[in-house]
Amino acid sequence: MKPASFDYVRATTLEEAVGVLAADDGVTVIAGGQSLLPMLNLRVTAAETLLDITRLEELKAVRETGEQVFIGALVTHASIEDGIAREAFGGLLQRVASKIAYRAVRNLGTVGGSVVLSDPSADWPACLLALDATAVLASASGQRRVALSEFLVDAYETALEPGEILTGFEISRRNAGGWGVGKVARKSGAFADSLAVAVLGRAGQATRIALSGTASCAQPMARVAALLDEEPGAQAEQLARAIRADITDAHEEATPYQERCHLHTVMSAITEARQSWS
């Protein structure tokens, strides 16, 4: 099995990469390639020119300051699994990274690639949406920042404009009061049927919960998050009502199985978040 032919260009600096993108709108960026290459091999997608950005050292950076953490787009799942930025959000990033696909895939797959693809079942979009991350985008004309809630538009669709490249994510070190993750997959490493990430609010910060495994991109679960802020001790029945209402918005025409999965993952994420906080 071989993909259809394409041209290949390798950039070594961000400046060079955005130059290539500005000059030709038929260019597809490739990073770890762990989603793109299977899709090319199966010919469910095609590319005229692949721009290899894996040598852009500036996109591999992780910078931690007092206020925020910057995770470069080329940081691999495996390096987060192995402890990069482990302390930043109480281990949340590490937990999410370690459950993505398989180690050999995590060794090359990148955080940025996962979010830019916006696969409906992917792990990072839900995690970074729950952390209220900001995507940092670069193009030949400069830089812009887009909140993840705006960046994720739909399944396989983002706010990335032609000529733009994702350089990384800025995540505020909010006073997160605990986090939890719920994931249902048919086997370990398979794409999730449902994945929920809950980050409880503290010190005036709002609770944020996000869901993957819908028909669209990762979705916020706003009602149940608001309920948790108003009534931190809300009981299971009350939570379930809010979650069901959120699921109706987040996943139109969900099957009964999908609804059960979503209810379970969101509830598990909340339970784990509450336990980790107390």
């Binding site: 490739i30 390639g33 290459l37 091999n41 290899d52 050999a104």
Partner: peptide, 8 residues
């Protein structure tokens, strides 16, 4: 370790 079929 990587999967050589999905590495260019």
């Amino acid at each position: 370790p990587v999967r050589s079929c999905i590495v260019l």
